[in-house]
Write a protein that binds this DNA or RNA. Structure first.
Length: 645
DNA sequence: TTTAGGG
DNA sequence: CCCTAAA
């Protein structure tokens, strides 16, 4: 069977492609027990999920926290063995089963399929088994799109500690049934309703000015949080590509033999979670260019301080595992919190595996603010982006046991009691903002999630009625939005356009919400990409958020160009956009370029907020005029040159 | 830093 | 918007 990880992004349920069956299980050699197909390493799963959801960045090995091996059996050996394991084949990927694997959530298909979502290249078909996988891995493009986590199936020792996102050294002890699915259901606006744990996690998104100046920024959210920063969307395709390639190198080679290894050896898995970011509409292949930014992004490993604070997203709903091989019984989780249920595990002295099934994760509360005049399509995208922002902004997994957060990542499952059947019932996982985790490389904005206007429909999951789901959130925010948001956005174009969202989480449990403001008019303007100005790592390489030019800006630009011409962008900037810190002369030049293009194409082909034809006519006129002037100038110079010669 | 263009 | 070669 293949392990299916489902990520329901609240809406439809995005399922991670089931991976090649068996997935990789990291097992040391000599493991006596056979790994069940459906078993998946909890950490792996989590990592996977996280990886899927978030983009992880970090690729520096150092930063990772490998799972510590404390196991009685393993400890001593670990050192030595790890090295051995380091080789390439540590994990095995088994081919996918079929049936069960085949159910991919529509969401995924949706995402993958339509729109050049980042998942686009990802195999969304179940069929893709091992073979497909390998093949897939070879495909760079695909690899890029691929999200690391999605396919991992592994086993973890209960002794391992979870920590660093990037690398995981795993030993085969704790198993989670592969069937686990992670669902990130609620993107809806109300947290309260679903907070399981009684605590709400909120992500707050503060829109801020994109650039350096935050002066004019509009703060949509009143809450400030330091703890959580959303990762900048670093989903640059290039970066992703890098990560992807790195990541995939290892995965494919896992062998079956490795699966069985009971010595408790740990096998290091390094994976970088990468984000897949596909450009909307772009058919480009991701050029593999490295960005400067990227370098800077070292990852901070910190996990430290804020470890558990943050937003607790949602606990996992029913976790139950089946012990396939061991005959253990699965207990339905009956967590008081409603969510998690522990599954039981078979404990054998030698290999005790804890099987867990994570049914779903809940997305922290999101607040969305959008003008009444916005289109449904933009709303959908906004929500999608908000979700993506949250997911991609840097989440970490929190473990709750009996209502308490298990903060010590170094404790073994055994020590924490996670392997205890009784406690499993109260075991829960949460998705919370990861303050420290902001590796530039992973910063995200995953376009992949952006659905084309037309294809947006499936966003809402079957579980939730379509409109109903969104309503809550919207209703909350909409009351005042028009005035506020529009006022700021549209009119303030020059100065502070609220776009970037800063997601921060309250240190503790408090609310975190994502506020998404959308300019009334521009459909495309959804500046929802969260980013953290504060985190340097991210900041360095961030791609600026997209801020479509408003009509008034276009007007100002046209006017300035008419007067100054097309070769003096700096002057144009000074003249018309001096206050708009986020508009650089390069931006203006680019905008002019697009305006000229826009003016030349048919209205039907134009996208985005429509620019008055009158302005476009002026654009063409100015363009023609200055083009001509330029030609004259050149001719003049040329003649002069000739004369001199 | 600006320009100018390709991506 | 990004990235860069040139200027």
């Amino acid at each position: 069977m293949v392990l299916q990880k489902r990520l329901d992004y609240g809406f439809n349920g995005y399922q991670v492609p089931s991976i090649p069956q068996g997935s990789r299980s990291a097992r040391g050699r000599g493991h006596k027990k056979k790994i069940e197909n459906n078993q998946i390493c909890a950490f792996d799963l989590l990592a996977t999920v996280a990886g899927k959801l978030l983009q992880e960045q970090k690729d520096s090995p150092a930063s990772t926290n490998a799972l510590a091996v404390n196991d009685q059996h393993a400890v001593a050996k670990s050192t030595v063995k790890q090295e051995q394991m380091d080789e390439e084949n540590q994990f095995k990927i088994e081919s996918c089963d079929h049936g069960s694997c085949n159910k991919f959530g529509s969401a995924e298909e949706l995402v993958a399929g339509n729109s050049s979502s980042s998942f686009g290249n990802y195999p969304n078909k179940v069929e893709r088994g091992l073979h497909g996988f390998d093949k897939y891995c070879e495909d760079k493009e695909a690899a890029e799109a691929q999200k690391i986590g999605s396919v991992i199936n592994g086993i973890i020792p209960d002794t391992c500690s979870m920590e660093g996102p990037m690398e995981l050294d795993m030993k085969p002890h704790a198993l989670i049934s592969s069937d686990s699915s992670v669902e990130v259901p609620s993107c809806r606006g109300h947290v309260p309703h679903d907070s399981f744990c009684g605590r709400r996690d909120d992500l707050k998104v503060v829109s801020r000015d994109d650039d350096e100046n935050s002066s004019g920024c509009t703060q949509l959210s009143n809450v400030t949080s330091k703890g959580f920063r959303s990762r900048p969307r670093i989903g640059d395709r290039r970066i992703r590509k890098l990560l992807a390639s790195k990541y995939w190198k290892m995965a494919p080679r896992l062998k079956a033999e490795d699966l069985s290894n009971s010595d408790g050896e740990m096998k290091p898995i390094h994976y970088n979670r990468k984000s897949s970011y596909t450009r909307q509409r772009s058919q480009r292949n991701f050029p593999f260019k490295k960005r400067k930014l990227f370098d800077g992004s070292s990852i901070s490993t910190s996990d430290g301080g804020i470890s558990s604070e943050g937003i607790s997203s949602s606990p996992i709903k029913g976790i139950h595992g089946d012990l396939t091989g061991s005959g253990a019984t699965v207990h339905e989780a009956s967590g008081a919190s409603s969510s998690a249920a522990g599954q039981q595990a078979t404990f054998q002295l030698r290999d005790s595996h804890v099987k867990l099934r994570i049914k779903s994760f809940r997305v922290p509360e999101l607040f969305i603010e959008i003008p009444e005049s916005a289109t449904v399509g933009s709303l959908k995208r906004t929500v999608m982006e908000a979700v993506t922002a949250v997911l991609g902004g840097g989440l970490r997994v929190g473990v709750l046991l009996q209502g308490k957060k298990v903060r010590d990542d170094n404790k073994t499952l055994l020590q924490t009691g996670i392997c205890n059947e009784d406690k499993l019932d109260t075991l829960g996982f949460t998705l919370e903002p990861n303050p420290t985790n902001a590796p530039a490389s992973l910063c995200t904005e995953d376009p992949s999630f952006q659905l084309p206007n037309d294809t947006a429909e499936p966003i809402i999951s079957t579980r939730y009625p379509t409109s109903p789901v969104l309503d809550p959130g919207i209703s909350i925010a909409s009351p005042d939005p028009p005035a506020t948001s529009i006022g700021h956005f549209v009119e303030s174009d020059h100065d502070s356009v609220p776009s970037p969202i800063d997601i921060s989480a309250d240190k503790t449990i408090s609310d975190s919400r994502a506020l998404v403001a959308v300019p009334a008019i521009s459909v495309e303007a959804l500046a929802v990409v969260p980013f953290n100005r504060k985190s340097r790592r991210c900041e360095i390489a961030q791609r600026r958020i997209r801020r479509p030019f408003s009509v008034s800006e276009v007007e100002a630009l046209v006017q300035a160009v008419e007067k100054l011409g097309t070769g003096r962008w700096r002057d144009v900037k000074l003249r018309a956009f001096d206050n708009a810190k986020h508009r650089t002369y390069v931006d203006l030049k680019d905008k002019w370029k697009t305006l000229v293009h826009t003016a030349k194409i048919s209205p039907q082909q134009r996208r985005g907020e429509p620019v008055p034809q009158e302005l476009l006519d002026r654009v063409l006129a100015a363009h023609a005029y200055w083009y001509q002037q330029q030609a004259k100038q050149q001719a003049k110079q040329q003649s002069e040159t000739c004369l001199l010669l």
